[in-house]
């Protein structure tokens, strides 16, 4: 069980040079929890803080405020060097399988180096390292003998991502954070990687944090999991995945879901689908109001002044976990539905 409480991240301003920018508030008080073997999907457009959240969870980035608790241990209460073993049990699967493996080393080397650290801790010998490498590669659906002595460049994107997952398993993680883990993989291979992740969840009770902008993939990983919608570092809607897909109440969630392409001929667009063009580059507009107000077609004067907090959405149809941060929550039907045909695929 991992609990994240009021997590804040501020990137300091950079002055001078081509990349100068003001201070960036990447996360603004995000609170979430992931149970063992649970699944949490985080969606949002690029720059909303998804990657930052994942990297903080995996201990690769510091945080500016809030706390993370693992199995009841608040990490803030530990000295720095004692936090690392906790963070190590949260492994990040990177988006790009082409840079996630060292091109100079064989797959065996990639597996053996972290395993050697484990072997030392658990007093195991070299045979254990080799056998465990093979075991883990087999577990992620690769042919161990054919893969071990290959270099990454000889593997396809899908195979590399499997190796990356196997390598993450070397440290017996509690949680895998998959940051856009299938977006750079060929369409035909994506589904099997998603299958692998949900399989690990069931078989090894590894929690999955699935960071994506493809809501359908999030649904495929865990229909029963939770979905969290981030907008500029803030949770704007949260709840069970299928419930949010079918009855989103926050205008930003509705925009995200509307953006999912409709397979014409197989599906028809939801009646409330709306693709906004205006304000698509309008990320500024600080103020004290709703962060989404500059782009929201339902904004009122109140939205400009007051900040909506995350509150439970209570109508008869919803479950207790459904939360939103909008003054005017209205469920809208935006997602595509399959057309009923007798010879459907």
């Amino acid at each position: 069980m991992i609990e994240v409480r009021k997590l804040e991240k501020v990137y300091p301003p950079v002055v001078g040079g081509l990349l100068s920018h003001n201070e960036v508030r990447a996360l603004r008080g995000v609170s979430l929890s992931i149970s063992d073997g649970g699944a949490l999907s985080i969606i949002g457009e690029s720059g909303c803080g998804k990657t930052t959240f994942g990297r903080i969870l995996a201990g690769l980035e510091s945080y500016s405020g809030g706390d993370i608790a693992m199995d009841g241990v608040a990490l803030n209460s530990l000295p720095n060097n004692e936090r690392q073993p906790y963070f190590r049990r949260i492994q990040l699967i990177h988006q790009d399988p082409y840079t996630a493996l060292n091109p100079s080393h064989t797959i065996l080397h990639a597996m053996a180096v972290p395993l050697r650290i484990q072997a030392k801790l658990q007093k195991k010998n070299d045979d254990w390292i080799l056998n465990r490498s093979k075991e883990l590669l087999a577990m992620v659906g690769l042919d161990p003998v054919g893969t071990l002595y290959k270099y990454p460049h000889a593997l396809s994107g899908g195979q590399r991502q499997r190796v990356v997952i196997a390598r993450a398993l070397t440290v017996d993680p509690k949680i895998l954070v998959a940051d856009e883990a299938v977006s750079m993989i060929d369409v035909s291979m994506r589904l099997s990687i998603l299958n692998l992740l949900s399989d690990l969840r069931v078989r090894l009770r590894i929690g999955i944090v699935f960071i994506t902008h493809d809501v359908a993939a999030a649904r495929y990983i865990a229909k029963d999991g939770e979905l969290c919608v981030l907008y500029r570092g803030e949770v704007v809607e949260y709840g069970q995945t299928d419930e949010i897909i079918v009855r989103p109440v926050h205008p930003y969630t509705q925009a995200m879901l509307s953006a999912m392409p409709v397979l014409r001929g197989l599906e028809e667009a939801g009646p409330d689908r709306y693709i906004p063009l205006e304000g698509m580059d309008d990320f500024e507009g600080q103020g004290s109001g709703c962060l989404f107000a500059p782009r929201c077609r339902h904004a009122t004067a109140r939205c400009q002044e007051q900040h909506p907090d995350l509150v439970p959405w209570d109508d008869r149809l919803s479950s207790s976990s459904h939360h939103h941060a909008c003054f005017y929550p209205i469920p809208r039907n935006v997602v595509a539905r399959p057309i009923n045909r007798e010879n459907a695929l």
Binding site: S156, D186, S188, S192, A217, Y220, L266, A336
Partner: peptide, 24 residues
């Protein structure tokens, strides 16, 4: 057919989705 079937969808039956065997 296989590629269309391998795309997860937002609504409808998830079990219909089938991965495509083999590599690109």
């Amino acid at each position: 057919r296989a590629i269309l079937r391998a795309i997860p969808r937002l609504t409808g039956d998830l079990n219909r989705a089938r991965p495509l065997e083999g590599s690109p």
